[in-house]
């Protein structure tokens, strides 16, 4: 284990110590991101271990009904709910992204056909033009069917004003794309004529517009899906709000702590009280009514004595941290917390 710690330290130490030109020359720079990601992956493995531990520790407490089993039960239910909601939401959003990109491919495919017909590629074999157009038309028919069915679903789910406009726009662009698909089907594709190229370009533009409208309506539909609502309820409605409630306690606690700290019993607490009063009065407009320079005085307190103290604390802690980091890296460990293995 110490060898791994040491070697890990050596790598990052060398990366930091060597000049950038040297790091690039020996190829460290090119692989640095991958190696750093590797460390993140190792860290991510702890997530699985953590879930296993939670289920093992709290599951046994529930099964054997040990003291506090109900809290463990609530934890496991919460865990299962969050994992399920996130998983369903992730699966749906992946499926939707796939649907949207499958429509975007239509226009790109049409553009690619034109480019390849004008300048045949040398690095790959391209099927005959007529065959590619037939594939484009077939694929276009499938995608337009899919878009129509999804748009109808959106209408059935109920639409508000903005969505109605979007649905109308999608239907309009869908009709335009179908007209172009019909023209593509009817045209002769022995070779790429100017008229054919114009037709393909127009279809590509129509397909891009259709994909854009479809992605908006799709995302709007997803935002109102059941899985998204459950996800939002658990995270935004419950989890974040509980965190905010805890944070809100700070207001009360600051008042209680300030009351205790600012009882002037010593010179130090007197100074603290004075500084606090100046800072508070300097913050509000009323402070300026009492003394014109109150905001400047507040600013001076914060920027000069306060910053000086902060910097001193940071310098001391930074130097101490550096020394301890060197000791950790070299594994010069104290007996006090590893004596059992000495």
């Amino acid at each position: 284990m110490r060898i791994f710690t040491f070697l890990g330290g050596v790598y990052f130490f060398l990366y930091f110590v060597l000049p950038e030109s040297a790091v690039t020359a020996i190829g460290m720079k090119a692989h640095h991101e991958q190696i750093s990601n590797g460390f993140i992956v190792i860290g991510a493995m702890a997530v699985g271990l953590g879930i296993f531990n939670i289920v093992r520790a709290h599951g046994s407490r529930v099964v054997f009904q040990r003291p506090g089993w109900f809290n463990s039960f609530a934890l496991l239910v919460g865990l299962a709910a969050i994992i399920s909601a996130t998983a369903v939401q992730w699966i749906e959003s992946t499926r939707n992204s796939r649907d949207i990109s499958s429509v975007q491919v239509l226009g790109e495919f049409a553009t690619r056909i034109t480019d390849d017909a004008r300048t045949p590629p040398t690095d790959r074999v391209v099927p005959p033009l007529a065959q590619r157009i037939a594939a484009l038309v077939r694929y276009g028919d499938e995608r337009t069917e899919l878009i129509e069915s999804h748009t109808n679903l959106s209408v059935e789910a109920g639409t508000n004003g903005a969505t109605s406009v979007l649905v109308g726009e999608v239907r309009e662009r869908l009709a335009a794309a179908r007209v172009k698909l019909g023209e593509l089907r009817a045209a002769s594709w022995e070779r790429l004529t100017e008229d054919n190229a114009t037709l393909l370009t127009q279809f590509s533009q129509d397909a891009a517009k259709l994909a854009s409208s479809y992605s908006i309506i799709k995302r709007s539909h997803d935002a109102h899906s059941t899985s998204q609502k459950v996800y939002d309820f658990l995270f935004d409605g419950l989890f974040n709000q509980l965190g905010s409630a805890m944070f809100a306690l700070l207001g009360v606690y600051i008042a209680a702590a300030a009351y205790r700290a600012f009882r002037v019993r010593t010179v130090e607490s007197g100074l603290m009280m004075m500084a606090a009063v100046i800072v508070m009065l300097g913050q509000i407009s009323f402070g300026k009514e009492i003394y014109e320079n109150m905001p400047s005085l507040r600013q001076w307190l914060l920027e000069v004595p306060n910053s000086a103290a902060f910097r001193a604390i940071r310098l001391g802690a930074g130097v101490a941290g550096l020394m301890l980091a060197i000791r950790m890296w070299l594994s010069i460990e104290s007996k006090s917390f590893s004596s059992g293995r000495k």
């Binding site: 001193a312 604390i313 802690a317 101490a320 020394m323 006090s336």
Partner: peptide, 10 residues
């Protein structure tokens, strides 16, 4: 304990 005193405590 303020700042580096944490490191000295041990």
């Amino acid at each position: 304990l303020i700042g580096e005193e944490l490191f000295g405590a041990s």
